[in-house]
Amino acid sequence: MSVTLIPAEFTLVKFDADEVRAIIDRTIAEVSFPADVDVTIEVDEVLPHPLTASVVEIVDGAAKLWFTGGCFESPQRQTGLSPDNTRVELGAGLLRAKDRLVGGFENAPADEELDERQRTIWDAYAEGRLAALGYPVRVQRRRYTFRLYGGFNDLADAEFERLWSGASLTWDELATMADALAEADTRPERKKSIRKESLRRIAPV
C-alpha cells in the first residue's frame, strides 16, 4: 500500500506535513483500512475553517480523499493544525472509502452526486463507528448537522441514534432512511442545493 499526501509540504497553513502523515498512518490502522489499497489524501489548504468539506472517490481500486484545509485546522489557532479534528475527518473519510471498497455500497452514487440528506446520513454512520473506536467525535455536533439536513423531528432523531449505535448498514439501508426522512420532513423544499462538495469544484486544478 502507498500513502500519498498532497501537498507534500504546506505553505499557506502551519500544518506539519510529517505530523499529518503520522496521523494518516495511525488512522488507516485504527479503522482497519484494507492493506492492499493505495491512498491519496489531498488537502486544499486555501479553504479555511469553518469551510469544512470532503470528497471520497475510488479510482482504479485506489482511494482518493479530498479535504478542505478547514477540516484539519484548529478553530482556536488560525492556520494551525488540530490533530483531533484531523483524526476524525480522516477517519470518517477512510471509513466511507472502506464502505465503497468492501461491499454493500456498490449502489452508492459518487460523492458529488449524493444529496445533502444522503451525505449527512453517511457521515453520521461513519462518525458513529469512529465513536465506538474511541475517536474524539462530538455527538451533538453531528446530531445538529443531521437535523439540519435530515429534519428537526422525532424520526430524524431516532434514525440518528440507529446510525450512531454502530449497527452494520448497507447503502440501500441508508438510502431507504434518506427517503423516509425526506417524507417526514415538513419543511418547504429548499432552493436547489449547492452541496458542500461544490467547494472542490471551484478549486483551481
Binding site: 469551510l51 478547514g70 478553530p75 439540519l148 467547494l199
Partner: peptide, 21 residues
C-alpha cells in the same frame, strides 16, 4: 475562488460549521 454567495443559509457549503462558528 468563486465561492458563490457568502450569506449564511442552509444551502451554502459547510452551513452547519459556519453556523456553529
Amino acid at each position: 475562488r468563486d465561492l458563490g454567495s457568502a450569506r449564511l443559509q442552509p444551502e451554502r457549503p459547510a452551513a452547519a460549521d459556519r453556523a456553529r462558528n
